[in-house]
Design a protein around this nucleic acid. Sequence first.
DNA 1: TTTGCCGGGTT
DNA 2: AACCCGGCAAA
Length: 494
Amino acid sequence: MIPDLSSPYLPNGSLSPTARTYLQMKWPLLDVQAGSLQSRQALKDARSPSPAHIVSNKVPVVQHPHHVHPLTPLITYSNEHFTPGNPPPHLPADVDPKTGIPRPPHPPDISPYYPLSPGTVGQIPHPLGWQGQPVYPITTGGFRHPYPTALTVNASMSRFPPHMVPPHHSLHTTGIPHPAIVTPTVKQESSQSDVGSLHSSKHQDSKKEEEKKKPHIKKPLNAFMLYMKEMRAKVVAECTLKESAAINQILGRRWHALSREEQAKYYELARKERQLHMQLYPGWSARDNYVGSYGKKKKRKRDKQPGETNEHSECFLNPCLSLPPITDANTPKKCRALFGLDRQSLWCKPCRRKKKCVRYIQGEGSCVSPPSSDGSLLDSPPSSPAMLASPSRDSKPQTEQTQPLSLSLKPDPLAHLVMMPPPSSLVLAESAASKPGALPAASCPNGALDHPPAALPPAAAASLAQPSTSSLHSHSSLAGTQPQPLSLVTKSLE
DNA sequence: TTTGCCGGGTT
DNA sequence: AACCCGGCAAA
């Protein structure tokens, strides 16, 4: 009955023995989650930029008053969870004291997202305050500290209530909204209710149907979303920006500027989040939640224009692609075939996104420099020697070493630049320039550009320092490291 | 507006 | 199998 969460990635050895031991003692059943906790802690230490703030942040976490939610025993879980000196001896069985019903094991870090989570307890105005909210009541945004830091991350990482068992139903009946669960009616069409609620039987019908349908379970947050949650407040504070679009742009840039390790942290958190999600909602699939639109939109038939193909654009991206397709000589197998589904962590970024495999490009031969110098290469699994350009990398071969490669679509525009007289300065001008209205550069100079130099991968740093033509030449690598300006440029070009 | 994830369709 | 498309996740 106990889900074996650990199998997927523990093998990678992401946990130090010590940490593992500790965690296991605390939560014998939950290696994975414990691991996540651990890593989060580590993370915090690693990345917390401003110690002072952070310290204060910790306080609440350590010990929060038995703040029990009046409405439900459910919340007590969180308390249990975070009670330091309370390593439940009975934990393994973890039986609900009241019902006597065994609860599914829950990771230590899942509760934070919840309203009563330690980190946020103090900030909850009223238990009912969050009741009607379809959205997770407590998120980074809720934190006052401009510097959420890792702790915040912890707190915001998980939206799942500890004991939230499968969609069983009964839980929802408690009336306590699950952060990740949104009732369709609530979520949307508030207007509908005022409009024709009275007369239209139709409305009722539809309403009924909606209710009937299972509640909407939100998708788990991905790595970037988690990052956004954590950093948004900070960016807002620094930049005095309000528009999401602008903030997101900055966040996107910063995301790319993150070191591999930092990104890895978020990837791992996201993965755990997903894992937990699946645990809580066994049958859940993204598609189920979006019956109306998700993937069912149309049966699209690719109408292809005779003269035009994707490859064309790819050629821009990477001239090498125009060459004849790879042959077996160059490792024809993509990540999927190479590692299999069970080892997705080893896949390159594009592969994970179901995009074109980066290996493919590289395999093309020599033609291309590693998709992204340095960090991006982390994608390279041990098995592909060619990619091991960066030697130091294996220190952390484990779980997440697949991110930095941002080779997706952004590069396209870049390609254009490469091929035509590149206004290097213009490009560098940071997207801000190209995007007059949207970009906050003016109002928040730092925000836009202040990537932590330390975290910057060499290549990125180089490109920043001397972005002009030279850096442009190495298209792929540049794309990987400094995608932002490009995207903007694209627009202008288009 | 951002990146990542993933189902479904196409090649 | 490989990969593109489109949509969702938060704010």
